[in-house]
Design a protein around this nucleic acid. Structure first.
Lengths: 334, 334
DNA sequence: ATAATTTATGAAATCGATACCAAATATATT
DNA sequence: AATATATTTGGTATCGATTTCATAAATTAT
């Protein structure tokens, strides 16, 4: 590998001058500048980032942390983040946590190791108390998820309003016994929390309340993520004596599983069971019964997340972003 | 940021000794080893990769290059590669080319810049003559795509046999006027080439020939990638006087588009038009008309690609891998 | 007890770049 | 023409680690 001294030697210049040429610094005569450039591409020289970094230059890289890229919600989110970052001349390092705390920590360690200038977290596995320690080493932006009153930029969708509209949509369609499936683990979801999942649930509950309807807590399903989970949920519903007439699934995948099992068990959708997804993934419209769903503003969220990070790195941090709106997409499943 | 000298100072040791502790080198007394370790985690010290790299240590990182991660075929491929690499203690850097030659070159430059030890190419945008220059700087492994007679490890699926079986399947189902859509640009596909696309086409042609059927070149559609392309293809078929009775689409996306437009235009699938996809993406089974398709061995391919790379880095390079087999999945579209 | 090894330790060179400083050269001002 | 100022240029310290080398201490062999 050619180094800067090789270039200097070949060009008959000092390393200082070559370095100036590399960095487009002033105070270099046109002649020598040309000489240096010629030597550089004759040797196919590229400055070693490790050496530059050691002298304190920024990495021009950002990490984007997601649970898994095979989840379309996240792959589209990354797509939109990366496109925005490319145009600002940043490299994107995609980190999958696979839902693992340590993997997330590993991404944060990239800050300490100066591998990246910032981290865009699209999910949170660790406690804020441990995450915040990394603010010493670089910028952190939250996308999709959020935590209240944090001193970092956040962009997220208004899950409360989204679920409220979604629920109201179901009510308007004539459904009244609405079940609810969440990705959250079976813990206290009831107390008015202030996170992603609670917001959704609160929006759902408030819409119900405004319609003077009560919620049967048997119709609450936890830990639902995959299509299989959806299958199981339908089987459980079948066993109930007091059955819901509609269900809001935590994601399109779960909704797809419910619809699938419904078909296999002779439950007609939406007449016997309305199914409303969340996300609006590409497959939603293609299902056997095209899925009505609450669309997440993935693209806008990605763009905004990237912009927030860029602003943050420029010291023009923005703390108060307005949440993005979800939108009910009416198809055939509800 | 704490440096190794900070640690040394705090522990009352020399940097050399601390370095030995960091790297588990011998010749350090247990006492001092303990002392160093204590100082290290008191300061939350992590060695700076840039500094280590400068001294010539390996990055323990590998790049995986794909066109786009929103394409499920590639996101699943990455998933399986990354899982395998994690267990071998390698970092995965995902690079999206967006079909752009320069982005691919950028990934290859990572080798020169010593950012990665190797690159797994899951698609090829540049000519081999330009790619091979990078072999000087690190290992390159080809996954999914392949080029003949290259001196690097490759793993790919037997597209020829896959398409041959797929075509035979269609014939057995009673179809005989089979159209073909390829992702390739409209160039000469006819001469027996030796790449991905040609293999597929040759398998298709040979199956036809063995059945003594001829191929109508009007039934060849180029540059088909998206669902929209699928829509267009169906519209074109509608206009034909001599219509095909089945079509092999270059991917499930294209197939989904064809099926969708068929429904919208009153063409019944599969009775009026059989549609066979390729890939077996998750959505394939969920379509309105569940898609018959030729399944790619994505998971095995990812695992093998990662293993090939690891072997290559250990100097146990393997040149002759047997191609993986595709498999016809019979559902309802054909 | 003395010599021969082995183990433990630290000082200093090194990796490849950047940036400060001083010297040399060119240009402008009087 | 002499002095002041600005522009070019190269030498060298520096970033944070690793590694070689020399030296000191401990262990083993004689």
């Amino acid at each position: 590998m050619a180094t800067i001294s090789d270039v200097a030697k070949l060009a008959g210049l000092s390393v200082s001058t070559v370095s100036r040429v590399i960095n487009d610094s002033p105070h270099v005569s046109p002649k020598k500048r040309a000489l240096a450039k010629e030597a550089m591409d004759q040797l196919g020289y590229v400055p070693l980032p490790a050496a530059r970094q050691l002298r304190g230059s920024s990495s021009k890289s950002l990490a984007v942390v997601v649970p898994r890229i095979v989840n379309p919600f996240f792959s589209y989110l990354i797509d939109s983040i990366e496109r925005t970052l490319i145009s600002a001349d940043f490299n994107t390092i995609i980190v999958q946590t696979f839902g693992n705390k340590d993997q997330e920590l590993g991404a944060l360690e990239l800050l300490k190791k100066q591998q990246v200038d910032g981290v865009i977290l699209c999910s949170i596995e660790n406690q804020w108390s441990v995450i915040k320690e990394y603010l010493k080493y670089g910028k952190i932006v939250l996308a999709n998820e959020y935590l209240k009153d944090l001193p970092i930029p956040m962009i997220y969708a208004n899950q409360y309003e989204g679920l409220k509209s979604g629920t109201e949509y179901l009510l308007k369609q004539g459904f009244s016994k609405i079940a609810y499936a969440t990705g959250r683990k079976k813990l206290s979801i009831a107390p008015l929390g202030s996170d992603f999942d609670s917001d959704r649930f609160n929006g759902f509950q408030d819409a119900l309340q405004e319609a003077k309807l009560s919620f049967n807590s048997n119709w609450l399903f936890y830990d639902a993520h995959t299509e299989e989970d959806g299958n199981k949920i339908l089987m459980e519903i079948l066993k109930m004596t007091d059955k819901p007439d509609a269900i809001i699934a935590g994601s399109d995948e779960v909704a797809a599983g419910i619809v699938e099992s419904a078909r296999n068990n002779g439950v007609s959708v939406p007449s016997q069971l309305g199914v409303l997804g969340i996300d609006d993934q590409p497959m939603a419209s293609k299902l056997n019964i095209p899925l009505s769903t609450i669309k997440q503003p993935v693209n806008e969220m990605g763009i905004k997340a990237a912009q927030l990070m860029i602003a943050e790195l420029n010291g023009e941090g923005e703390r108060n972003t307005t949440p993005l709106e979800l939108k009910v997409i009416s198809r055939q499943s509800a």
